[in-house]
Computed example of a mutant assay.
Amino acid sequence: MIAAIIVGIIAGFLAGKIMDGSGFGVIGDLLLGLVGGLVGGAIFGSPNGMIGAIVVATIGAVILVWISHLIKRA
């Protein structure tokens, strides 16, 4: 559980930096990273190791940020 939270924080932070350089705040980044981990896991399958989990969660979080930006523009 603690490892998933840490991965979520890192993934949310990285996604915020990759997409527009602005995050959604600490709690928003955490939630985005955790949900991004689920999205990334659904797309790519379960990763092996901490680095793989961070990469998959970051990709999932970037996808979620991209979708949220599309929704904001509409």
Rank of each mutant, 00 (worst) to 15 (best):
I10W: 00
A11S: 13
A11C: 11
G12M: 00
G12Q: 02
F13V: 05
F13H: 08
L14T: 02
L14E: 07
L14I: 09
A15Y: 07
K17F: 15
D20I: 06
S22R: 14
S22I: 11
S22N: 15
G23C: 07
F24V: 10
V26W: 13
V26I: 15
I27N: 10
I27G: 11
I27V: 15
G28C: 12
L30V: 14
L31I: 10
L32W: 02
L34W: 08
L34N: 04
V35T: 07
V35E: 00
G36T: 02
G36R: 04
G36H: 01
G36V: 11
G36I: 10
G37R: 00
G37E: 08
G40T: 02
G40W: 05
G41N: 01
G41T: 00
A42C: 13
A42Q: 13
A42Y: 14
A42P: 01
I43N: 06
I43G: 05
I43Y: 11
I43R: 11
F44L: 13
G45M: 13
S46K: 14
P47C: 13
P47F: 03
N48C: 09
G49T: 08
G49C: 11
I51R: 12
I51S: 10
G52L: 06
A53D: 09
V55Y: 09
V55Q: 01
V55R: 04
A57D: 00
T58P: 03
I59G: 11
A61G: 05
V62H: 08
I63C: 05
L64R: 00
L64E: 03
V65M: 15
V65K: 01
W66D: 02
